[in-house]
Design a protein around this nucleic acid. Sequence first.
DNA 1: AGCCACTCTTAAGTTTGCCTTAATTCCCGC
DNA 2: GCGGGAATTAAGGCAAACTTAAGAGTGGCT
Lengths: 220, 220
Amino acid sequence: MRLLLIEDDQSLADGITTALRHAGYAVDHAELGVRGVALAQAARPDLVILDLGLPDIDGVEVLKQLRRRQFKSPVLILTARDDLASKIAGLDAGADDYLTKPFAVDELLARLRALERRVGGITTAELRIGDVVINTASHEVTCGGKAVKLSRREFALLRALAERPGLIQSREQLEEKLYSWGEEVSSNTVDVHIHNLRKKLYPELIRNIRGVGYKLENGQ
Amino acid sequence: MRLLLIEDDQSLADGITTALRHAGYAVDHAELGVRGVALAQAARPDLVILDLGLPDIDGVEVLKQLRRRQFKSPVLILTARDDLASKIAGLDAGADDYLTKPFAVDELLARLRALERRVGGITTAELRIGDVVINTASHEVTCGGKAVKLSRREFALLRALAERPGLIQSREQLEEKLYSWGEEVSSNTVDVHIHNLRKKLYPELIRNIRGVGYKLENGQ
DNA sequence: AGCCACTCTTAAGTTTGCCTTAATTCCCGC
DNA sequence: GCGGGAATTAAGGCAAACTTAAGAGTGGCT
């Protein structure tokens, strides 16, 4: 799951970024509105967090530009506690949710999950593939009822596959979902994580199509 | 993946077309707006690349006509660098992305992939020829309900044929669709794959026209 | 701050399965 | 029947995928 954060306050941005990365998101970060618009088009994030109080362009204007360019991913806006006017303007311009500063990171994470679900058309926080159950909120995974402990990357990978069961995704596509800009890997990392997932769950769960990519069996 | 290019500049169109073919797309090409609208309805492409500067109808008008006729596939528009007005008009008329000329082919390919991804779940990724069903997303093929395991090249070949049922395609044309630049083969590879496909599916599916090429029977 | 545990990335070695090649046979049209 | 395109077959080579292990990096705990 790829996410774009448009936020000028460096320390706040750092905090959010690390928290989100820990939660398994690939996070891109822009400090200015113009850069945010560019990044949104280049990186095609699944979610955007947009601070309305940017130093260059007004945040609402950034949002309008995005929507005008057919950018469809949900946008969550961050506003100051008392800035009701721009909050409303933001929602009118196509924001999907808002959060007033200051906020708890857990709250942010919860809202993001809700947004993901809303656009994915999914109603529960659980993904099921065969007898593997993935809880996207608690990051818990069970296989045949037994809890399985997955690391961050393993979880992100499994989830990326589970969101589109049956669909084949290439290594490159999967890497895009796991890694932010400047985090790119240059090895067979995906292979290794796939291997570890197969070991922790069961080998037949993830199938490889030689020369094409990986997919999850379309769970019965 | 089937694609329609509406572009009047012959040399540009040729360049784009070959690049796209090598990237695995089945490309139809129209030089005029009217013809583009007709082809879009006849060929049902999964993606459209539309140059806004056409000699007959205005490109934006083409797009409006398409959308008015319930044409749902994503459309990427090509504009001159400075023609901001028609770019915006294009987006408002239902374009999904744009690219300003001149552009690098890689950029175009990247955008197309992004568009595919965006609509990935929406477009039905199934081709049917008689009782052979080809799922391009999961690379699964069934023949009379039974799953058949195809290798990458076999799948690509079957897909190339199935995208144009009834049309005779020469070995050279098929090779072009299977191999990218610098991968050319110098033997009867296509023959062999055809043979294996016939064995795995059924012999009558693929017909040879002596001296011309191969075709799929126009599914009953 | 320092230590410990855990995870991630890299890279090398191994396995696997597919693709190409090419030789041979088949068959269609002349 | 003859020529040439098409079908068939089998094997070797090769690249993709798998496996393993080690070292770097990270975070957590005391």
